[in-house]
Nucleic acid binder design. Structure first.
Length: 504
RNA sequence: GGAGCCAUAGCCAAGUGGUAAGGCAAUGGUCUGCAAAACCAUCAUUCCCCGGUUCAAAUCCGGGUGGCUCCUCCA
């Protein structure tokens, strides 16, 4: 197994990764609170950790991947009340939507997907433990974690309680039923119209942070290997999880390794509803295809903030009529290169047959990918290796000069397999090339408003002209099609066409 | 006010002490009836600025400048 180094947010550096059990990884990632359709920010985080999970699997680890669904929460209750829908039903509906959307981006289903609503007993048990050992206290039907009892508080976010107190004084004063400003709710007393469960403290529901502590304990144990989530969750969510779990099970427990992914920004500014730059998963998938977003994500390192170029499209009178996802369109063009290459390799292999076992030349893609991923999941470096491998394959496909015939055949076939194997480690290149290319053309036809019937009529006319060696007429038709934004691809098997895509 | 992150070519983006991966775009070439695709070649004496440490710095240290995030719901 490749020795692995991962960045740890707690130690603030790359460190050797040593799982509790050799060869196995227990990993917990904070999942969504489903109260509205998933947006691109959800997708980015899900893709980042799915990539980490895939990479660890590729490196030979047996990964148990737990990603929760927070289906009991203020925002859900609010949305349900507004819609006149049962909050659990609403959460279940959006959770299904979320999973369907993530699948479009190649995100695998978690090994376990626990929900708050099915872990109430474990949550109450954990809160009781904290109350019993003096880490938490009841106040008017609420239960709060007493932050003063947990000395290491702030270690992950690098803030002291004094610093936080200074920040808090600017805005909000101490709530009257809490001992201290930093204390946070483990259990909230039910208000009218809210879902509730019976507890030793009366009817109520869990606070925001406690579910992750209960779920990690239930599914991965007191101590586990990796805890992940978006950078924004470091404070207070992850900080509070640490306090709860270590308050209950001891300060040497909980996550051995913290991983946080960078944020998605738009023109250097974070995404937020008030700025109007929140884009839905469906909108993205329709515009550029789900794999383009995936490809765009793995082109960047998971810890880097990632900037996303979006351009508003306006009609001649200035009315906004849509948006163009420039960065994703570029990623889709890049992706097309790989699928065109795979298609050519597939055709070659189908035609040339399998050359069997034996030597190959320049097939170190898998080794390079392992080395890159073992260094804190350096997916951009893997992308570079993928490009080199695809270039090599294209070179061999174009000409086999000076190379043993069998070696050439074996190498091309091996490169095809390796591109897919390494692609799988990043969650890309798993589709059928023909399907991808067909769908991509469909998207471009829609985006550029190409008249397909007209293109096909001109194509037929040109084929007839070329059959009689009337090249002048054929070239005239080519020119006409170019004017329509269509490129022709003459091959020995006939003429195919594609929509010209030059970022305009 | 407190905590932290980022700055690498026209653009995107790796690289955290040993002399700048990869991609897009661009230019020239090969191939092609002409094209497209593909391939080949060229493309950062230099990594925001100013000091310092070192035989050696994009990488470490100090000081600036610019951008961003968290401390409030946020992925």
């Amino acid at each position: 197994m490749t020795p692995l180094r991962l960045h740890d947010s707690m130690r603030r550096q790359k460190v050797a990764f040593e799982p509790l059990q050799p060869g196995k990884v227990g990993m917990y990632v904070c999942g969504p609170t489903p109260y509205a359709p998933a947006h691109i920010g959800h997708a980015y985080s899900a893709i980042s950790f799915d990539t980490i999970r895939r990479a660890l699997t590729f490196l030979g680890y047996d990964v148990t991947y737990v990603r929760n669904i927070t289906d009991v929460e203020d925002k859900i209750i609010k949305a349900a009340n507004e819609a006149g829908e049962d909050s659990m039903a609403l959460a279940a509906r959006f959770a299904d939507d979320y999973n369907r959307d993530m699948a479009r981006f190649g995100v695998m289903a978690p090994t376990v997907e626990p929900r708050v609503s099915t872990h109430i007993a474990q949550i109450i048990e954990l809160i009781q433990k904290l109350v019993d050992n003096g880490s938490a206290y009841e106040s008017e039907g609420d239960v709060y974690f007493d932050v003063e009892t947990f000395k290491p508080y702030g270690a992950l976010s690098g803030q002291s309680l004094d610093d936080l107190r200074a920040g808090a004084s600017d805005r909000e004063l101490v709530e009257k039923n809490k001992k201290s400003f930093a204390d946070f709710a483990l259990w909230k007393a039910a208000k009218p119209g809210e879902p509730f469960w019976e507890s030793p403290w009366g009817k109520g529901r869990p606070g925001w942070h406690i579910e992750c502590s209960a779920m990690t304990h239930t599914h991965l144990g007191d101590t586990f290997d990796i805890h992940g989530g978006g950078k924004d969750l470091i404070f207070p969510h992850h900080e509070n999880e640490i306090a709860q779990s270590q308050g209950a099970y001891g300060t040497s427990t909980f996550a051995r390794h913290w991983m946080h992914n960078g944020f998605l920004n738009f023109g250097g500014v974070k995404m937020s509803k008030s700025l109007g730059n929140v884009f839905g998963c469906g909108q993205i998938a329709e515009a550029v295809g789900g794999e383009a977003l995936r490809f765009f994500c793995v082109k960047h390192h998971y810890r880097s903030p990632i900037d996303f170029e979006v351009e508003e499209v306006r009609s001649p009178d200035g009315t906004p009529i849509g948006v163009r996802f420039r960065s994703l369109e570029a990623a889709d063009r890049d992706l097309e290169y790989f699928y065109v290459t795979l298609q050519k390799i597939d055709a070659f292999v189908a035609q040339g047959g399998d050359a069997g076992e034996g030597p190959t030349q320049g097939t170190d893609l898998v080794a390079k990918a392992k080395e890159a991923l073992a260094d804190d999941i350096n997916s951009p470096k893997v992308m570079a290796a993928l490009h080199e491998a695809a270039t090599h394959a294209n070179k061999l496909l174009a000409e086999g000069k000076g190379m043993d015939k069998q070696v050439r055949r074996r190498t091309i076939a091996q490169l095809g397999r390796d591109l897919r194997t390494v692609g799988n480690a990043l969650g890309i290149l798993q589709g059928d090339p023909r399907t991808y290319l067909h769908e991509r053309r469909g998207r471009l036809v829609a985006r550029k408003g190409v008249d397909v019937a007209k293109v096909e009529a001109l194509l037929a006319e040109r084929a007839a002209a070329r059959a009689t060696k009337d090249f002048a007429r054929g070239d005239a038709i080519r020119g006409e099609l170019t004017g329509l934004g269509v490129e022709l691809l003459d091959t020995p098997q006939g003429t195919d066409w594609r929509v010209h895509d030059d970022a305009s």
